[in-house]
């Protein structure tokens, strides 16, 4: 009967990356790369451009094969568009009403000034 145990591999506690030129020394964490570091380095920028181009292809293909909008998603999008239309109408009506109130108050103020 199999019994699972922990392999501590105690001889392995330093990172490998520096041996491939990822940095000068072993650090506290594995060394990641930011977009700025990639495009700011001549060699990395060449690799980065080819990786980004391939990723664009991968995700475009994925989107075309399996990411078409489902009926539920269409229904939800239409519902959101309906809410957006309604909110736009409400916003327009509210702004118009505020304009009317403002105009009314200005008129009243002008009338009051004339009466004094």
């Amino acid at each position: 009967m199999t019994k699972l145990a922990l392999h501590r591999a105690a001889a392995h506690r330093t990172f490998l990356g520096p041996e491939f030129g990822t940095g000068e020394r072993d650090g506290d964490e594995p060394q990641g790369l930011s977009y700025a570091q990639i495009i700011g380095d001549e060699k990395l920028a060449v690799l980065g451009r080819s990786v980004f181009a391939e990723l664009r292809e991968q995700f475009t293909a994925s989107a075309q094969s399996g990411d078409a909008e489902t009926d539920a998603e269409t229904e939800y999008r239409k519902k959101l568009e309906g809410w957006a239309d309604m909110l736009e109408i409400l916003l327009e009506e509210t702004l118009t009403e505020l304009d009317n109130i403002g105009a009314g108050r200005r008129e009243a103020a002008e009338d009051g000034a004339l009466l004094q």
């Binding site: 990356g17 491939f20 030129g21 990822t22 940095g23 594995p30 060394q31 990641g32 790369l33 990639i38 060699k43 990395l44 060449v46 690799l47 980065g48 990786v51």
Partner: peptide, 13 residues
């Protein structure tokens, strides 16, 4: 690429 799993030693990364 983001995790710097890159061999930097040659003429090209």
């Amino acid at each position: 690429l983001g995790m710097n799993s890159v061999d930097h030693r040659g003429a090209a990364a």
